[in-house]
Design a protein around this nucleic acid. Structure first.
Lengths: 127, 127
DNA sequence: CTATTTGCAAACGCTTTGCCTGATT
DNA sequence: AATCAGGCAAAGCGTTTGCAAATAG
């Protein structure tokens, strides 16, 4: 059973997130919640965001707390990250590369020039 | 003209990056360079990595230095980031979603269960 | 009641930066 | 010789955490 409690802090954070499509930062959410709960702390916002992400009720875009990784290979290629050992592998599927941009351009009104595609799962060693 | 100088620190960092496909962190690179240049500082490694990335000689995988962004929409969807205004938009192209995993599975020996795809370019407001 | 959550503030970890010295062109 | 780059250490910044007080169930 789930021992989590629905505090007014948590409820407010969830509502704010469900009501926007601006993909906000913790700081922005914090500012919004403060309008309703002036004494809320930023730590509480982070704790709740992490909890919600763990329960897959929200998604984290660009997890900022990892180290940066660098790639000396500038040829266009994709990456695969093993969920188990965290290793990053190169993937040779540039077949789509141009197609993906084209499809995105044709189906939206953005001027798409680039994309980043990353796969996740288990590598040969871990599976 | 390019006023950058080819120091032995810079040269060593480039060589190390070109010689590996492990997508290392700054710290790992630092440890490698130290074997040749024991007095090199971590700051120098970072300065060079940033410089090389700016000149597109290397790629940064997951820029750790940005803030995290959160998405309350758990429906499978892609994102578009405007290079100019930095706004993040939703994109409705889940058409491929399953296909991309399938293709990756068929063409590699990884067990692919997931992926993240992000497009870049100019949004309607900025273009 | 009592275990979970909060507020607060301090700590953390990665990255950046200021200052001065050293090296490259 | 002039200016770019490096070393060192401190600062920056987003995020996490320890602790005591508050509160949901």
């Amino acid at each position: 059973m789930d021992k989590t409690r629905m505090t007014k802090q948590r409820k407010t954070i969830i509502n704010i997130l469900k009501d926007t499509d601006t993909h906000p930062t913790a700081e922005w959410i914090y500012d919004q919640v403060k309008k309703e709960i002036p004494k809320i702390s930023l730590g509480t916002v982070y704790r709740n965001l992490n909890l919600l992400a763990e329960k897959d009720q929200i998604t984290v875009i660009n997890y900022a707390n990892e180290q940066s990784h660098y790639d000396g290979n500038t040829k266009n290629h994709y990456h695969f990250k093993c969920k188990n050992c965290k290793r990053i592998y190169d993937l040779d599927l540039d077949l789509f590369s141009k197609d993906l941009n084209k499809i995105a351009n044709q189906n939206t009104n953005f001027k798409v020039s680039d994309h980043r595609l990353e796969f996740y799962g288990l590598c040969p060693i871990c599976k």
